[in-house]
Computed example of a mutant assay.
Amino acid sequence: MQIHATAIVHPGAKLAEDVVVGPFCLVGEHVSIGKGTKLLSHVTVDGWTEIGERNELHPFSSIGGPPQHLGYKGEPTRVVIGDDNILREYVTVNRATVQGGGLTSVGNKNFLMAYVHVAHDCRLGNQLILANAASLAGHITIGDHAIIGGLTGVHQFVRIGAYAMVGGCCGVVQDVPPFTRAAGGYRSKLYGLNSIGLRRHGFSGERISVLKKAYDLLFRQGHRSAEAIKLARAEFNDQADVAQILTFMEATKRGISRSIGKDQGDEDESA
């Protein structure tokens, strides 16, 4: 274990033997940090926080601070961060509220760029990229392999599905289904499939073709959501990717982001 002379580590904290705690870091009493994790400098880890193995926390990141929620009364709610994550400068991850289930979680192999904010009760999956100053309000869920653009704000309780891509400088106020792209100003809209991203993740042309057909049926043919889901289940009843979208849609509480017209949405899907 390497703890710099200027760092303050509470005697009650649990650190693996090879954890590195750099200059001017602060580690609180109820913190647990797994092997190979590095706190580079000026990092604060507080609250009831568990950080896994081989993570990199860059200067001025703040993990496990109290939620920015007027109902919070000091309860021992938690932050759990998995393995192999990179949290760049000034990233904040707040602990949860009792009302939200008591847990804010970040999975494995995620890249949170500078100034990203993860609010109370968020649940982040694996292998995500959140670009600079992306801001998540409370109770947000993000599926695996999603990308969130810089300076984008996501409204509380919104869900973003696996393999989705959200552009920069936009507001996300409704759910973004798996495999899709969303962008555009205050109220982002769907712009077709995240086809380039899917190919990069090894999706075959056949899988992408099926998803495109399902997308057209669900979002571009003018059906009401319940009717579109019913039609898609009948047409694609043996397709696991489509089933994932339909299950996601059926569980929505804030509604699904609307899709723009076909010609606009397909502009760069063949790139």
Results as ranks from 00 to 15, higher is better:
residue 6 T to H: 08
residue 160 I to K: 06
residue 209 S to P: 05
residue 214 A to V: 06
residue 84 D to Q: 08
residue 211 L to V: 04
residue 186 Y to C: 08
residue 262 K to A: 15
residue 181 R to H: 06
residue 77 T to A: 10
residue 271 A to W: 11
residue 259 S to G: 13
residue 85 N to Y: 12
residue 207 R to H: 14
residue 80 V to M: 11
residue 142 I to N: 08
residue 81 I to Y: 02
residue 8 I to E: 04
residue 16 A to H: 01
residue 215 Y to W: 07
residue 56 E to S: 10
residue 23 P to F: 01
residue 211 L to S: 03
residue 241 D to P: 03
residue 96 A to W: 04
residue 219 F to M: 14
residue 220 R to T: 13
residue 82 G to L: 07
residue 253 K to N: 13
residue 237 N to L: 05
residue 37 T to R: 00
residue 5 A to N: 11
residue 88 R to I: 05
residue 83 D to K: 10
residue 81 I to A: 01
residue 190 L to N: 03
residue 215 Y to G: 02
residue 33 I to E: 01
residue 5 A to F: 13
residue 75 E to M: 08
residue 194 N to W: 04
residue 80 V to E: 03
residue 87 L to Y: 04
residue 213 K to E: 15
residue 26 L to E: 11
residue 184 G to W: 09
residue 41 S to G: 02
residue 256 I to C: 01
residue 224 R to V: 06
residue 124 L to C: 02
residue 167 G to D: 00
residue 85 N to F: 08
residue 17 E to G: 00
residue 197 G to F: 05
residue 198 L to W: 07
residue 127 Q to G: 04
residue 221 Q to L: 13
residue 69 H to Y: 15
residue 245 I to E: 08
residue 66 P to R: 15
residue 61 S to E: 06
residue 138 G to C: 07
residue 35 K to T: 11
residue 95 R to Q: 12
residue 211 L to H: 02
residue 30 H to G: 02
residue 108 N to L: 10
residue 147 I to K: 08
residue 155 H to N: 09
residue 90 Y to E: 12
residue 190 L to W: 00
residue 243 A to D: 14
residue 247 T to A: 12
residue 112 L to K: 01
residue 175 D to I: 05
residue 141 T to F: 12
residue 224 R to D: 14
residue 106 V to Q: 04
residue 249 M to R: 12
residue 166 V to T: 03
residue 153 G to E: 11
residue 251 A to H: 13
residue 184 G to D: 07
residue 40 L to P: 02
residue 121 D to G: 02
residue 45 V to F: 00
residue 59 P to D: 01
residue 172 V to D: 05
residue 139 H to K: 05
residue 146 A to Q: 14
residue 229 I to D: 03
residue 176 V to N: 02
residue 225 S to Y: 02
residue 187 R to P: 00
residue 156 Q to G: 10
residue 94 N to C: 06
residue 254 R to T: 15
residue 135 S to P: 01
residue 130 L to C: 10
residue 1 M to V: 14
residue 196 I to R: 15
residue 210 V to W: 00
residue 135 S to F: 06
residue 161 G to R: 06
residue 17 E to K: 11
residue 66 P to D: 13
residue 170 C to A: 09
residue 87 L to M: 15
residue 203 F to R: 02
residue 56 E to N: 11
residue 120 H to K: 07
residue 170 C to K: 03
residue 124 L to P: 01
residue 224 R to C: 03
residue 236 F to L: 09
residue 135 S to R: 12
residue 177 P to F: 13
residue 38 K to V: 15
residue 129 I to W: 10
residue 194 N to V: 04
residue 198 L to C: 08
residue 72 Y to S: 04
residue 264 Q to H: 13
residue 104 T to L: 09
residue 55 N to M: 02
residue 132 N to S: 11
residue 99 Q to N: 09
